[in-house]
Structures are given as structure tokens and as C-alpha cells.
Write a protein that binds this DNA or RNA. Structure first.
Lengths: 339, 339
DNA sequence: CTGAAAGCGCTTACAG
DNA sequence: CTGAAAGCGCTTACAG
């Protein structure tokens, strides 16, 4: 690869003249020299070395997306729906995007806190709290998507998240409004947001005058296999005992419930109402189409970039947070309970 | 961030002693000094600067995934199904993965050919040939997933791809074997593989003694909207003229056809047989479940990493290529034509 | 076993 | 308008 010295030699100028041309320093280089340098740059296919630029304190102009690949083969619609608008926003603001997927061992993506990117956007729910703290300790500007369990993040990082409590309240109120009384909640794993969604669930139940029955928030460790098995277990209860409606931590879980219900010959929404959370694209096409609490995922992705850039530019405080409002999308997986 | 000098000062040794400890130089540092250095590293949360290491000619131990985000909100199952095993393989071999998504303007991801990663894996079908050539010119080791239109790549890069001709032949032979005569092919956009799939289509038709009718390979520019509209157009033909079977460039297109058929009230497979290509996860769940030509996407992702690493280690030539065999997966979207 | 020096490719004051 | 020098954080011969 050609270096700045090669260009300089080629043009009979010094390296810093080349640098001035490349960095568009105003009025420092004559138009003639400038042209000569640019021609040589094209001719030799010169490309400034990113590592060297970073060394002298320049930005990489790169945003890192910190994530951890999950060992499943299901494309994750939730992330995809955030990632696309996020990347688009970065492009618009002229920032490059680097998607980091580190080793599960060896500190995961925290290995990337080494100057390769200027700031980070992190999918909190997928990040180990230890790694969250490592990010914070590195003092890399960061925006978390989704609330974090880390107390430290509370004051030292920016967070964008949907109003989880309000969203759950919306979804469960829809069910109580339909006349449901026995409502179960399939909880998510211990990732951010679950606690608040459980709180919203309880508030809606309370306001509807339903006894705050501890039995119904079923625990669940994830939304692939164990979610499905939990659903099967719940749905195998005799009809007089089983909930007439299930509020699910997310759409993936709700889709598992639909699947489980179909297998057990339980008709949705006639015998069981199901409400999800997220509004993934596939949820509109399920059988039946899913009633769900929509997160404005595209807005979240876009805003994450805008906030991070603003923080790096010093236009927003490092602990800036933004909570976006959810919507209820009523489709065909919910109905009044059968008598 | 702490630097190597900070550690050195902290321990009362020189910077190169610290470096020796960090790089595990055998028998160069006393066990005692070593411990002292390591303790300081932990205490100060020191992390070697990647840019500086790269500067002195060390590897980043990073594989770049070159891609271009497409402006649609559909999560791309094809890529996801390759990416997950690819990342997993990289992890196993102790390489980090960086997913590059550049600006559409400004040279796309070629901006990343600046020393940030040691080698590249590129989704050929999504890359502009100009960018392909830029990658080649940079002399960065690269493995292309899918054949490229660039003649230069033929001799200067490694390629892993499914046998597109054989796959199409498999899919279309299945249709002719069922008794179909009027078979249309919905072509893909001008990306790699389409030409070979058309060739396989024609060979199967020829071998079945069907006249090589030019009318049937319908052109299509992409598999989202225009694929759907092409399908609608074809299916609106009077039944006596329209194909009894459609072989599609990929599953995404085939799913559009299923959608279009459902809208027009055309029953699949009774009135129309449909065959896809890829075998995406959603294809097993469509209505009806899709008959398709399976690409071993997981193998492709895994092998891409293994090949790239072997090339970087000098164990495989830079133009190494590997062609993997496709399978026919028969589900319920194909049947004998109605009389 | 440990240290001083040079150099990787770039940019930034600072002279001229 | 152009050039010489210093320095970013690291590693690698090379002395001692």
C-alpha cells in the first residue's frame, strides 16, 4: 500500500503538504500543487491508513454496534428492524458503522474498546453486565438501546428505550377491557425491560380490579425453546383453570404461544387471546395476525445514532436519556373471552 | 486511557519490558517483574491500542464482513443464515469479526480497506463490481461468497459458492419429472449466480424435451416489489397460457409468488407449482411450505472463514475456490399439473 | 533479564 | 505557500 511519503516523493513535495491537501486545509496549498498531489493519490490508489490517523488523535468517524451473537439460527427480526434505520441514519450523518461481534470467551466485544471506533451503540439486552461496566470504564461514548441492569449506567451512559411499563399496561388493559380476568404473563429472561413490563402488567390488572394473583406471571428464561415449553405447560391446564389470555414479553414469545396453541388444538382468539410486544414484521403475518404493543424500532435505531453523534460533538450530556412511547396494534389474536 | 508508558512508570520498568510481558515473549522477563506488570495492567485497566499495534505491523486479528445494507426493512434471512455460523467459526478460530456497512456514496465499504481488518469476506451479490475491483487492488486477502461478475476476481480472489447450475437443474428437473411442460423462471437481478441458474433451467428443459422457449425466463430486477409485480403479471394470464409451474431465482421471490397467487385466488400447488432456491428458514413455514433448492448456507459461512484464515496463514492460494453441492427439498408447493 | 533507540504512517504546530 | 520536527502508542532488533 502506498503511503503519504510515496505521494510526497512522487510529487516532489513534503509529506505534510500532502496531508494538507488530503485534509482540505483552507488556503494552505497552491491550486497547482493540490492538483498534482490529487493526481498522484489517484494514480497510486493511495488511502490514508486509519490506524495512523487514529494515532494522532483523529476520529475514525466510526460508530461501533456492540452486540453478541446468539447461538441460534433464527434471524432476529427485532435487531434487524433497528439496525437498518440505524445504519441509514449513520450514513446520512456521514459516519461509518462497524458491527462488533466478539468472542464469547475473552471478554466479548469489550476487546473492541481499543480505539477502533469513536463511540458505541449497544444492544443492552444481549450484553453481559460485566461488559456493560467495562464499556463504562473505558469512557467510550455509548448509547444503550434498552435499559440496563447496571446501576453505573444510570449516571454514566445514555439510554434510549421504549416505555416498557406503559406498553405492558396498554397491552394488558386491552385484555381486561375485552373482559378477560384470568390473564397470564409470559415473562422474558432477566434482561432489561422485563421488570417494567411486569410492573405495567400488574398495574393494569389492579386498575381492572383483578386480584393481584402471583401465580400468573410465569417465569421464562428465553423466547425460543423454553418459552415454547412454558406455553405448552400452561395451555395443558384444564380450560377452567388456564388463563383466557396471555400477555407475552415479546412477539417471539407470542409466536411460540400461537404455535403451541395450534398444536394443542386451542383456537386463538376463541379460546385464548394472545398479546405480544415489539411488533416485528412477521407478527402481522402470523395465524392469526398478532395483537401487539408496537415499539417504534425504526425511530429507536435512528435516534440512537443521532444521540451518540450529539454526545461525541458535545451537544448532549453523556447521560442523556430518551424514552419513546409504545402503541397498541390490535389485530386478530385477541377477542372477548368465551363464556 | 492508560498507555504502555503508564504501566512502565507504575512498575519502574521500561516500556518494552511491558510489551514483552503482554506478548508473552518466552523467557525474556523474570517471573517477578512479570507479575508486577500484570498487576499494574489490571489495576489501571490497560488495553493495548489496536491502532498502534497495527502500525508496527501486527495483525488486528480481525475479519471484516463487507456488505452493503439494502434499503428495505425486511430482515434478510439469507444473510442471517450465513452470518451466524460464520461468526461462530471465526470465534472458534479466535478471530474477531467486524461487520462493515459503509455509506452508499463515497465508495461504500471500500473506505474500510485501510488496515482495520486483516482480511475480508464479501457478499458478492450485494457489492458493486467497482468496489470488488477496489478490494482486489488493495491486495487485502478476500473470500467472496457467491461468484462475481468481475473477471479480475477470477484469478485474484477466493470464491465460495453453491453450484448454481446444478441447483437450478435439480429444481427444474423436479418440475419436468412431475409432468410440467410450461415452466417459467423468475430470474433474479443481475447479481452473481443468476446466469448459471438460467443455464441450469435451460438444460433441465432441454433434457425433458421441452422446446427452449425464450418467453419463459421472465426478467426481474429484484425480489421485493418488482418480483411481486412480475408474478402478478404472469399469473394474470389466462390459465391456458400461463405457466403451470414457476422456478424462482430464490426463496424470497418464491414467497412473493405464493403471496401473489393467494391474492389472485390461484391455488398452489393445484393450479401452480412453485420452486424456490436457498431454503431460508421461513420457507418451511409458508403456506404451502415451499419446495426449494437448498444451499448449505451454514457450511458456506463456516468455510468462508476457514478459507480466509488459511489464505492469510499462507496455507491456501489466494485464488482458492470451493463449490458446494445443493439439495432438493420437496415440500408442498409442487405437484403434477392439473389436466 | 532489562533498557535505549528507531520506526510504523500520519497530523499539527511552528518556522521560513 | 511549503518544509523540518515532534509525537501519537506500540514492537522489534540490538546492546548491555
Amino acid at each position: 500500500m502506498a503511503t503519504i511519503k510515496d505521494i510526497a516523493r512522487e510529487c516532489g513535495v513534503s509529506a505534510n503538504t500532502v496531508s494538507s491537501v488530503l485534509n482540505n486545509k483552507p488556503g494552505e496549498v497552491s491550486a497547482q500543487t493540490r492538483e498534482r498531489v490529487l493526481a498522484a493519490v489517484r494514480r497510486l490508489g493511495y488511502r490514508p491508513n486509519a490506524a495512523a490517523r487514529r494515532m494522532v488523535g483523529k476520529r475514525m468517524n466510526t460508530i461501533g454496534i456492540a452486540d453478541r451473537f446468539i447461538e441460534n439460527t433464527q434471524p432476529n427480526a427485532y435487531k434487524a428492524q433497528i439496525l437498518e434505520p440505524l445504519t441509514h441514519a449513520a450514513r446520512t450523518l456521514r459516519w461509518d458503522v462497524l458491527y462488533y461481534a466478539g468472542h464469547v470467551t475473552g471478554g466479548g466485544f469489550t476487546a473492541f474498546l481499543d480505539g477502533r471506533s469513536d463511540g458505541l451503540i449497544s444492544f443492552t439486552g444481549w450484553i453481559d453486565p460485566i461488559e456493560v461496566n467495562a464499556i463504562l470504564a473505558s469512557s467510550t461514548p455509548v448509547v444503550f438501546i434498552g435499559d440496563t441492569e447496571s446501576d453505573q449506567a444510570e449516571h454514566r451512559a445514555s439510554i434510549i428505550d421504549v416505555d416498557n411499563e406503559a406498553g405492558a399496561y396498554l397491552g394488558v388493559s386491552h385484555l381486561t377491557g375485552l373482559g378477560h380476568r384470568r390473564i397470564g404473563m409470559l415473562q422474558g429472561p432477566g434482561i432489561s425491560g422485563n421488570r417494567d413490563r411486569v410492573a405495567g402488567f400488574r398495574r393494569a390488572m389492579r386498575e381492572a380490579g383483578v386480584a393481584d394473583n402471583d401465580a400468573y406471571p410465569y417465569p421464562s428464561t428465553d423466547w425460543t425453546l423454553s418459552g415454547y415449553y412454558t406455553a405448552i405447560e400452561v395451555l395443558r391446564l384444564p380450560r377452567s383453570e388456564r388463563p383466557t389470555a396471555l400477555f407475552c414479553f415479546n412477539d417471539a414469545l407470542a409466536l411460540s404461544v400461537l404455535h403451541a396453541a395450534a398444536e394443542l388444538g386451542i383456537s386463538v382468539p376463541d379460546e385464548l387471546s394472545v398479546v405480544g410486544f415489539d411488533d416485528l414484521i412477521p407478527s402481522a403475518l402470523s395465524s392469526p395476525p398478532l395483537t401487539t404493543v408496537r415499539q417504534p424500532l425504526a425511530d429507536i435505531g435512528r435516534r440512537a445514532v443521532e444521540i451518540l453523534v450529539a454526545i461525541m460533538d458535545g451537544d448532549l450530556p453523556r447521560d442523556y436519556r430518551e424514552i419513546v412511547a409504545p402503541d397498541l396494534i390490535v389485530r386478530s389474536s385477541t377477542a372477548a373471552p368465551a363464556l
